[in-house]
């Protein structure tokens, strides 16, 4: 097993409800993420996985329920406090969300300069180069995102997520749209960086290979609730007819 049983909980979700009109997406969802743990959330497209992590980072507001991140209740924070907390939470977007009009350097400097306004040019350069070296793309520093391949853009997005050295990283479909080899490289990179910085992660995905490679534990999100949780092997070995199709 993963040895996380006695570690502190860094993210706790209790009875989370979120609807869009009559469409109930989250219907009393619960989750606890421990320090240093990689937790995968698996579910069909449209099951509410992305809504879940957007609620965690404060991009969406839940209808009911409680989200506590590093001891702070997200719903009770004002904008400044939320921005302050967001420094400790990295978010890797499904579409990478690199700023098209900025170079790779400017993309990486953006969160640095917005969150740490006092950072000087030398320090910013050092941090940018360190983040790019972490993902093996130091030579792309002056390129535009449009000049990079899909896998490279994903790595740059990961470098941007890591530049503030967050304690928790939220991955939204990190391998979607990538070929199997690049997907494997990204999964390995996620593991490498998790070990290096001892981050805790929530990985939203329906890529079983990625989940198997990266997760310590997984939760199956069905009908807006945590239907089942356990390790990859435990869920794969389940004879529940609802769970089996996910592993076929």
């Amino acid at each position: 097993m993963n040895g996380n049983e006695n570690k502190e909980v860094v993210l706790l979700i209790r009875n989370l409800y979120k609807s869009f009109g009559s469409n109930k997406v989250l219907n009393g969802f619960n989750l606890a993420l421990k320090k240093g743990e990689n937790l995968a959330v698996l579910g069909k497209s449209g099951s509410g996985k992305s809504v879940l992590i957007k609620c965690i980072i404060g991009l969406l507001y839940p209808d009911e329920g409680e989200i506590t991140v590093l001891g702070q209740s997200i719903q009770s924070l004002n904008q400044d406090e939320l921005d302050h907390l967001r420094v400790k939470i990295g978010f890797l977007f499904q579409s990478n969300a690199l700023y098209d009009s900025m170079t790779v350097r400017e993309n990486l400097e953006f969160p640095l300069r917005r969150h740490w306004m006092e950072v000087n040019n030398t320090k910013a350069h050092e941090l940018v180069m360190e983040a790019l070296e972490n993902v093996g793309l130091a030579d792309t520093v002056n390129k535009m995102p449009a000049e990079l391949s899909g896998g490279m853009r994903k790595r740059i997005a990961l470098a941007r997520t890591l530049i503030l050295q967050p304690e928790i990283i939220l991955y939204d479909e990190p391998t979607t749209g990538l070929d199997p080899i690049t997907s494997k490289e990204i999964s390995e990179l996620m593991n490498h960086l998790q070990k290096k910085y001892n981050t805790s992660s929530i990985i939203i995905s329906h890529d079983m290979n990625c989940i198997q490679r990266t997760s310590d534990r997984m939760i199956l999100l069905i009908d807006g609730v945590a239907y089942k949780e356990g390790s990859f092997d435990e869920l794969k070995g389940s004879d529940d007819p609802v769970i089996q199709p996910y592993f076929e």
Binding site: R86, V87, I89, F91, P111, R114, H115
Partner: peptide, 8 residues
């Protein structure tokens, strides 16, 4: 969204 989570 990325801008918003970057404190902007």
């Amino acid at each position: 969204d990325a801008m918003e989570v970057s404190g902007t």
